[in-house]
Amino acid sequence: MEQQVGSFAVKKGLAQMLKGGVIMDVVTPEHARIAEEAGACAVMALERVPADIRANGGVARMSDPELILKIMDAVTIPVMAKCRIGHFVEAQILEAIGVDYIDESEVLTPADEAHHIYKHNFKVPFVCGARNLGEALRRIGEGAAMIRTKGEAGTGDVVEAVRHARSVLGEIRRLQTMPEEELMAFAKEIGAPYELVVETRQLGRLPVVNFAAGGIATPADAALMMQLGVDGVFVGSGIFKSGDPARRAAAIVKAVTHYQDPAILAEVSRNLGEPMVGRQITSIPDAERIAGRGW
């Protein structure tokens, strides 16, 4: 066989290498170095963390490629960057500068109200957010090589990430107890490709790596998501909006590795300084919630 690049196996494979790790949002090369030093397995390069995107309002777009390139130069770990839902030209630009993963993200303002990017055409892999199994399998059908919960980004409130993880994992458990003749109707009900429904049932898990994201702010939050059954965590605003980012970042990395060991979780949770202030989900009007973006 000739050498082959950009296959689904290598796209999905990088996500497999990120498992059991923490992917951190960073807005400067300095942040990126702090994240790498703390043990992040990858960074997400962006101009503003979700908490600031919320606070600033306006249209949120792909970050300046210059900033992303500087962050790529600053660290040896993989660098991810976000494009708007459906904005395949932003994705082409991110592929052209060589980012390692693209997050087609609801945190940015959607560019298309009906369609996501057709991701199979790209050599670079994509991660997408999902609130339930149907959404996750639609994204995989379009070519996503990694899935994450949406949660509610920029809030520091983990409740939505828990809701989305329980929804995806609970529907998979239900699927496994279903007789075969019910699978087609189930696929129709959740709006998912039938073949992926069958594959998920056989595997007993999503066919790609599944991380938690959106509202994770403490080592305990990260370990909670791991115990619920995700493969790793994204931490957005939770690190660099806290009092002592380096210390908190290192603690969350340790919590994801030792998520089943309460004694270690207690030890790493000590003296972390102020967490991000956070915003309770129930105080946010529906119009300002971003998890509903995506189709």
């Binding site: 066989m1 050498q3 082959q4 296959s7 290598v10 060589g98 390692d100 993963y101 050599k123």
Partner: peptide
């Protein structure tokens, strides 16, 4: 040598 073949877009399969 780490990352000797380039970034993720250069990742590959071969026999």
């Amino acid at each position: 040598a780490r990352n000797a073949f380039g970034r993720q877009v250069d990742s590959f399969e071969v026999d």
